[in-house]
Design a protein around this nucleic acid. Structure first.
Length: 423
RNA sequence: GGAGAGAUGCCUGAGAGGCCGAAAGGAUCAGUUUGCUAAACUGACGUACUGGAAACGGUACCGAGGGUUCGAAUCCCUCUCUCUCCGCCA
């Protein structure tokens, strides 16, 4: 959520930045400013009347104690009108405030100055490409066939138990999952992130804090009986650990990592591009989260991007890094890098990570602040990234490392899998 | 799920209708004293909105929301959460 004071002071720039994100209702900006003017005016009128009423009440108390009952009664008789005024102004104020809030949550975050204009994924900017794309023989198999061939993943069984998009991992397939999770967590800890294990269900306040709510309910599974949402990403519970927190400046940056399953309804996405592991309703992911000083957050974003790239390099996967264009970015993000691995058998790039700086967009909702050099509270910046999401890593690993002998496990994983080949 | 107790500032904890934005202690920060450490002393020390160049003001907030009252942390109602006991249970 953008800060109203920022919108007021930077109206032109806000409009210009929103345009980069192809925001459809620029008129909201002026409505918000107008509502905030109303808010201020009403607030200050109410404050004045309240001050008057407070003074009268105090006077009555003093007179009563002094035994001047009649004078007290006289003032009492005048307070009725004040009371009514306060009530009316209060009602007006909350109406304005809720309208303001409703409009405010409709504004997406402003994209960073480096974000390219554009509408679709085609407009994303390729920042770099790394690693060698393997040349597979013509009979190379896509991962869903490899998964069947080596009995690693049973998609049908998942359908029986739950439905499409909930695979059952078996044998070396299951072990590979655990190996990747442990490897990713260990690597994150080496990079200074401390591990947390967090709830997989979150309340509405948490969903609001990281900007899944309102509006994106449809993307999350909802447990109505208890009013809880299944997390679509560990970003939600981990970032919300710092909701309503004021950190000390020297506590920044805060670095956490955590493994969780993630649940996404993915309503409306079907077809050949979502076969196998390409898109699931439940998948595993290790997430890295940082709370950073505003002056440092872009440096931190690069570090996080570097961390993710390091993982891909160590796994020997060819990848590229995209800087998302305005139209393809998430609602709350100011700058997002997507990392994609090259899936040789499918001949396409698969998104395996997304690293974003939210600047103060989330922290404003979260009331996540730190005490700055002047001793004042200031909103911190929040960042997060997948490091990494497992399914498409598994897909790429299986496809790219296949040979007649079987599937070769990357060296760095062998200590975790305890086997070198899937055969 | 049943019964009871409770929710106050960074923490402990007082507060019982006006003198309470809130005692006291601890923690923290600054200063004084001191050979160092420790101790002692002095002072500062919630958040948000708002007026003001600033000094300094106004308003709101004692789990949340309503109510009673001229006046509510304090009384009443509803909700949420926590704790204890019982039941169930990995």
């Amino acid at each position: 959520m953008l800060q109203v004071s920022y919108i007021r002071d930077n109206r032109e720039q806000v409009l210009e930045r929103l345009a980069v994100k192809n925001f459809k209702q620029p008129g909201l900006v002026d409505e918000i400013i107008r509502l905030d003017n109303d808010r201020k005016q009403t607030q200050s009128r109410m404050d004045n009347v309240s001050a008057e009423a407070n003074a009268a009440a105090k006077q009555i108390g003093d007179l009563m104690r002094a035994g001047k009952k009649e004078e007290a009664e006289e003032i009492k008789s005048k307070t009725g009108a004040l009371k009514e005024d306060v009530r009316l102004l209060g009602e007006a104020l909350s109406a304005i405030e809720s309208e303001l809030q409703q409009k405010l949550v409709l504004l997406p975050n402003l994209p960073h100055s480096s974000v390219p204009k554009g509408l679709t994924p085609e407009d994303n900017e390729v920042v770099l490409e790394n690693g060698n794309k393997p040349n597979l023989p013509a009979n190379a198999l896509p991962h869903w066939e490899l998964a069947a061939k080596y009995n690693l993943i049973d998609f049908e069984l998942g359908v029986k138990i739950t439905g499409a998009g909930f695979p059952v991992y078996k044998g070396k397939g299951a072990k590979l999952q655990r190996a990747l999770i442990n490897y990713f967590i260990d690597e994150a800890e080496k990079a200074g992130y401390s591990e947390v294990i967090v709830p997989l269900l979150v309340n509405e306040a948490s969903g609001f804090g990281t900007s899944q709510l309102p509006d994106k309910e449809g993307q999350m599974y909802f447990v109505g009986i208890d009013n809880l949402y299944l997390i679509p990403t560990a970003e939600v519970p981990i970032t919300n650990m710092y909701r309503d927190v004021i950190l000390k400046a020297d506590e920044l940056p805060v670095k956490n990592c955590g493994y969780t399953p993630c649940f996404r309804r993915e309503a409306g996405s079907y077809g050949s591009h979502v076969r196998g592991l390409n898109r699931l309703h439940q998948f595993d992911k290790v997430e890295i989260v940082q709370v950073a000083h505003p002056d440092e957050s872009y440096k931190v974003l690069e570090q996080m991007s570097g961390h993710v790239q390091g993982l891909l390099q160590k796994l020997g996967l060819p990848y590229r890094v995209l800087r998302l264009c305005g139209g393809d970015m998430g609602f709350g993000s100011a700058l997002t890098y997507d990392m994609e691995t090259w899936s040789a058998a499918q001949q396409r790039w698969l998104e395996v990570s997304s690293v974003s700086n939210f600047e103060t967009f989330q922290s404003n909702r979260l009331k996540l602040r730190f005490r700055n050099a002047e001793g004042k509270t200031q909103l911190a910046h929040t960042l997060n990234g997948s490091a990494l999401a497992l399914p498409r890593i598994v897909a790429t690993l299986l496809e790219n490392n296949q040979s007649e002998k079987g599937i070769k496990i990357p060296e760095v994983l062998v200590p975790y899998t305890k086997f070198e080949w899937i055969d």
